[in-house]
Nucleic acid binder design. Structure first.
Lengths: 158, 158
DNA sequence: CCTAGTTAGTATGTCTCCATACAGTATGGC
DNA sequence: GCCATACTGTATGGAGACATACTAACTAGG
């Protein structure tokens, strides 16, 4: 993996963006590999975990919480439902919405997901202190806020 | 932007991954917006800047330095060449390779790119100290190394 | 009521990238 | 020289996500 090979010679903005981008890709990839024999990718596992923790939720709620669009979320739930890991129920109060719940089979699979997540996280934290991780998260959040205002401002101006 | 809305309620691994992922997406998006009236996206601008700085390069060299695959890089160069921002020249020493160089028009466009990059970077750095940025980069590199070894190990085991 | 506006979920097209496979070309051992 | 190997650039198919547009259904104002 050429993670750090383009640290010195690339143009400045690319350093930030491509490092973050490459890291994000690699995280996704490592989870996908660890989950591959469960036939789950990271997004599917995330939906499963989120639904397990929060009970019957609409797809829009799930999408918002996971930072995905509604279309992408719907596709994920299609896949999970096809394997009977979650089930859709009609909402008695609103005939537009599906309430998504985890099934017994889903819970069982999720146990294995948790185990592997723990192992992988331990490997990824190697050589990175708790304080550093917290700082990383804090800086990323601030960066995210700056990005949000940049993007918002941009829309105004247009 | 729901950058921080899923900070507290999402499952743990998702916090790290999705924060990084969302940040990367947002960075790309903000650059794309700032460059949109130049008809450039971040990757194209990166290729342009990299070629401007390092002169005639093979596509493989460019790909490696930018952390992209050769196919994706080729497509980017196709687009830039179609707009006469770069030009391909045959390598007298190796008939397989294209040597890619920036054109006058490319250099002119790049000036504008640099100006906008400076402005955007200043906005993104808002409230983040130089030290924090360096630490962010350092932690990301370490995380990247951990990811690389995880992915490598995974291949061995398979 | 009933009409206008909003929201839930879905379908579709696009974007950006990767992985794989391929054809043409170099290179190093024999 | 010759062959196996490695490498360059391209074509193709797929993954993952977005934006847009659409249908169905809810809701609030008149």
């Amino acid at each position: 993996m050429s993670m750090s090979s383009h640290e010195l010679d690339a143009p400045p903005w690319l350093r930030v963006e491509s490092t973050i981008m490459a890291t994000a890709r690699a995280i996704r990839q490592s989870y996908d590999q660890r989950f591959s024999d469960l036939d789950l990718n990271l997004s599917e596992a995330s939906v499963l975990a989120y639904v397990a923790e929060h009970g019957a939720l609409s797809q829009t709620q799930i999408a918002k919480s996971l930072g995905l669009g509604r279309a992408a979320t719907g596709a994920l739930i299609d896949a999970l439902e096809g394997r009977a890991l979650v089930q859709r129920q009609t909402d008695p109060d609103d005939r537009r919405v599906w309430l998504v719940e985890i099934t017994i089979a889903g819970k069982e699979l999720l146990e294995e997901v948790y185990v592997r997540d723990q192992i992988l996280r331990k490997q990824l934290r190697n050589g990175i202190t708790r304080q550093e991780r917290q700082q990383l998260a804090a800086v990323l959040v601030r960066l995210g806020n700056n990005l949000a205002s940049v993007l918002a401002e941009e829309i105004e101006t247009t």
